[in-house]
Design a protein around this nucleic acid. Sequence first.
DNA 1: GTAATAAGTGTTTACGTAAACATGATTGGG
DNA 2: CCCAATCATGTTTACGTAAACACTTATTAC
Lengths: 394, 394
Amino acid sequence: MIGYDVGMLTKSGQPRGHSGPGHSVTNPDGSQGQDDDSEGRPAAGEARPGSAPRDRKRRVSMADVAKLAGVSSQTVSRVSNGSPDVIEVTRQQVISAMNELGYRPNSAARALKRGSFRTIGVILFSLSSIGNVRTLEAIALHAATKDFAITLIPVTAPTQAEVQGAFSRMGELAVDGVIAIMEIHLLDAATVSVPPGVKVVVVDSNAGETYSVVDTDQADGAHKAVEHLLELGHQTVWHVAGPEESFASGRRQQAWRETLLAHGKEVPPVVRGDWSAESGYEAGLWLAGQEGCTAVFTANDHMALGVLRAFREKGKAVPEDISLVGFDDVPEASSYSPPLTTVHQDFAQVGHRCVDDVLRQIRSNSTEPGMTLVPTNLVVRQSTAAPRDIDVSA
Amino acid sequence: MIGYDVGMLTKSGQPRGHSGPGHSVTNPDGSQGQDDDSEGRPAAGEARPGSAPRDRKRRVSMADVAKLAGVSSQTVSRVSNGSPDVIEVTRQQVISAMNELGYRPNSAARALKRGSFRTIGVILFSLSSIGNVRTLEAIALHAATKDFAITLIPVTAPTQAEVQGAFSRMGELAVDGVIAIMEIHLLDAATVSVPPGVKVVVVDSNAGETYSVVDTDQADGAHKAVEHLLELGHQTVWHVAGPEESFASGRRQQAWRETLLAHGKEVPPVVRGDWSAESGYEAGLWLAGQEGCTAVFTANDHMALGVLRAFREKGKAVPEDISLVGFDDVPEASSYSPPLTTVHQDFAQVGHRCVDDVLRQIRSNSTEPGMTLVPTNLVVRQSTAAPRDIDVSA
DNA sequence: GTAATAAGTGTTTACGTAAACATGATTGGG
DNA sequence: CCCAATCATGTTTACGTAAACACTTATTAC
């Protein structure tokens, strides 16, 4: 995966000439080109004798293509939309006219006529969490395969007002459906009104009864993490939770607690962080001083990183003195010291399902909610082991 | 920043007992086959034979509002666009009619008429790098303040064909300008043709003479990193570079080399990684075995994380045995062990400038390229120190 | 051979908005 | 008091596309 490139600074910049002339449709500064049309177009906006180099050359429309190809604009439309009712010869004429003029369908007009934009809006508060980013990426990629575009609707602050604002802008935005990625519980149907007919899917929230929800199976993941530690022989498992406002955090914490109780274990006090590595560090400092703490489950990997640092500074070895499990499986988790045992979230899957669900709603023109939980799996690395004083080998 | 929620486990996990009854759960391996569907192209629409409770209530249009308010639709348009030429009484009538009917402007029609969508397209290959993500976030936020929306145009593979495809889709996409975030040098003007009139800004590439470019001042950052290590008294600085295709990597490497040469230092062989922590780990294993290696500059923080792990495993202490500097200043860098000295990139600034530049081009209707370099600054933490055998205190 | 289809293409129209132009009402200067 | 200027509003039109329908031919059915 890595190579040694001794001293090689040869300005390797240029990726093979690839000059291939072939088909230079457009000169970026293209003063001219654009052939056709020298025969005076009725609109004649060109006049502008004075300075003003407005090269506001009207875009090529179907009518232009139709004229060149010697057909009606409706036929051009049919070709453009792949209608089977066009004879091959005509189709070729139209296509070559399209190429000659560099025709591109105008999506505004198309959307106006069709009443659909083939676009999905994604509302998100922040891209600072790995999960949001990966989910967004998956959404974008999957939507692209369905020929849908993605419009981003950032929300600057996680307040009711902001979210409400984002939703009400929906109505006027060029969007057929909406995916809201919110890790905060702001989506009470009571307080946020969505324009009628807008299809919504929510990631990670409590809006389950009003809108479709897609999410990682948080409880399942936390359960697996805790079970793993208990099976190794730990008496109980401590927990570094995420911020209180986060639903994901809440669900992980709840599952952690329930799993402990189900095994008849004591439930230690919760340490609460804010997802950041820094807060994990502080939590770790405190945990390192707790008697009998041999196993810790942190609600995400970044906090686990902070915990690791704190433990190292306090002379606690991982996993010899304390075992640690994270959540997320960020790409770097395998390079922590030691490599982190963690719960892998399949964000790609989450994004995929989101798109499928909005498209389902758009197709069926209904807003009937569904719920999808994407399973997790535990990735065991080297940050967990049996506790010192217990022998489970027997 | 973190609070101790001691013992407070009493149901605190479950914010508002929202355990949600009812509500069908769709199994991930979804029996609901509706996946790969026939959605591809809208060849034949709907067909919907029987019932079809299409509540296709035509959307409220200006005409409806006009009728209710007893004015012409043009007056509604004026109110909608904040024209000053409407008398207050009339304006209020229109506004209340709007509210009553729940009118929202139709952006398709608006765009068709205006020839502008107030939308910026962002082409990106991947969201896996921190920089891209943070830049995108900044772009989205800043564009929002300018009342522009963001459309995502993901490119699945960093090939010429893909990028070309993305650009030619531009023409038909509802986009007034484009920001391309590409860390790969694929944007030769010769091979990629942009539809005429499309305003382009490129982040991190070599397209400087054709398109506007905005980027972090990579050379400056690398220079600062190397200078810092040399000032501490190290004889030279080793380098873990990013992948060869990356321009950012190339510039950092080049600046590293030039700085060493400027100080008359020897230039050690380059170790090449691929940005991942894993590749950093491998690089670190190799570096740990090199005689005289006391200072390392890695081209990003994640690789530095891997290097740290390798050094720890090889018994090399940081910074006592080897000093280490990263690049990016990811949020967790301060929680590495030890906290990492690194070059901070101001991605927010980069995104901000991108938007400003596209908007400039859109406003002036020119595509005249500009170039903006955003300065970096070195964040000194605890991974760097003077080498063992040198005394710089004098 | 004629009627009934079907296939391929053209014509008309509507989508919702806003620019350009037109109208009617008010004002003010001489 | 009239003409011009200004203001507030109405009317017409065009933006580019695609649905609905109309119109030719060719093909098939009898």
